[in-house]
Amino acid sequence: DESNKPILLPNESQSFERSVQLLDQIPSYDTHKIAVLYVGEGQSNSELAILSNEHGSYRYTEFLTGLGRLIELKDCQPDKVYLGGLDVCGEDGQFTYCWHDDIMQAVFHIATLMPTKDVDKHRCDKKRHLGNDFVSIVYNDSGEDFKLGTIKGQFNFVHVIVTPLDYECNLVSLQCRKDMEGLVDTSVAKIVSDRNLPFVARQMALHANMASQVHHSRSNPTDIYPSKWIARLRHIKRLRQRICEEAAYSNPSLPLVHPPSHSKAPAQTPAEPTPGYEVGQRKRLISSVEDFTE
């Protein structure tokens, strides 16, 4: 099969070098950035008060330690540790928490760990991170309901609301924008112990962030949302095809390698009803078989 044979790379090609550099910018793992907010007593309706908090309760602090690993920003190499735009020179604080497994990295933009500057009256330095995160974990210690939209931002799609209760338990629920209701189930609340709260809140936030990324990708319907490693695979396959075309153009005697095509017509299947918005969006999480067989 010609399409699977190794090909020689061009010795000097600026377009090839640019493509390789672009490939280096696509990590081999999925990345997520999640905002974390603490809401104190009497702050449920005040964005400024929430963003001005420099610490929270003892249970909130224990919750943070379970979310991930504490890292010092100045020691991080952005090409190895995903920071979601946090500055490593102290502009966004000294520490944050991050978490990773074999296929993804997540960083938490924690408002109480970011510096509260006197010259920044409206807390814009914090909002440029927190307001651009799709998902926020809100530790609501106010005793009042927290409403979506209290923290203004164009991309605040989903809130994971943590409400501490007695007996070391917590109520965990989801809020989302109306255009996200087909992807996020907000109907079920959970009672979770303090011990298990970081794991549950983190998983709910990661799932909500993946759904938000799919939702946000609708602005470019021709580019369905893939995982990062599938995006790398697609980029490599496009690069291979372009090299083959350039080689055939410079030397017409060489065969032009095309991806294999299936001449056999697909079997006719009964027509199915058109899937609704929710089903269609969830299918976009699934990769096409052509990603692996071309």
Rank of each mutant, 00 (worst) to 15 (best):
N4H: 12
P6H: 06
I7N: 04
N11D: 14
E12W: 07
Q14L: 10
R18E: 15
R18F: 04
L22Q: 15
P27E: 14
P27Q: 08
Y29K: 14
Y29L: 13
T31E: 15
T31M: 08
H32L: 08
H32C: 15
I34W: 00
A35F: 02
A35T: 07
Y38D: 01
V39Q: 01
Q43W: 01
Q43F: 01
L48S: 10
I50G: 02
S52T: 07
N53A: 02
R59C: 00
T61K: 15
L64S: 01
T65W: 07
G66V: 01
L67S: 00
E72R: 08
K74L: 03
D75K: 14
C76K: 09
Q77L: 09
D79G: 08
K80E: 12
L83Y: 14
G85M: 05
V88A: 09
V88Y: 05
C89L: 05
C89G: 14
D92M: 07
Q94L: 15
D101G: 02
D102K: 03
I103P: 05
A106M: 09
V107P: 02
H109D: 05
I110E: 04
A111V: 04
L113K: 05
H122E: 15
C124G: 14
D125V: 09
K126M: 05
R128P: 05
H129S: 06
L130Y: 04
D133A: 11
V135F: 01
V138W: 01
V138R: 00
Y139C: 00
N140A: 00
D141C: 01
G143Y: 04
K147M: 08
K152Q: 15
K152T: 13
G153Q: 05
Q154Y: 12
N156C: 07
N156S: 09
F157M: 15
V158T: 02
V160I: 12
I161N: 04
L165D: 02
E168L: 02
E168C: 08
L171C: 03
Q175I: 06
C176E: 01
K178L: 07
M180S: 01
E181M: 11
V184Y: 05
S187I: 02
S193P: 01
L197A: 13
L197I: 03
F199H: 02
R202V: 06
R202F: 04
Q203D: 05
A205V: 01
N209V: 06
M210Q: 02
A211L: 07
A211V: 06
Q213D: 02
V214C: 07
V214H: 15
S217A: 13
S217I: 06
N220T: 09
N220A: 08
P221H: 06
P221Q: 05
D223A: 05
D223E: 09
D223G: 05
K228W: 09
I230Y: 04
L233H: 07
R234S: 11
L239G: 09
Q241A: 10
R242D: 14
I243G: 08
E245T: 11
E246H: 05
A247E: 14
A247K: 06
A248S: 09
A248M: 12
Y249V: 12
L254P: 15
P255M: 07
V257E: 15
P259R: 12
P259L: 13
P260Y: 12
A265K: 13
P266V: 11
P266C: 11
T269Q: 13
E272Q: 06
G276C: 12
V279R: 13
V279Q: 13
R282E: 14
K283V: 08
L285K: 05
I286R: 10
I286W: 08
F292E: 15
T293V: 04
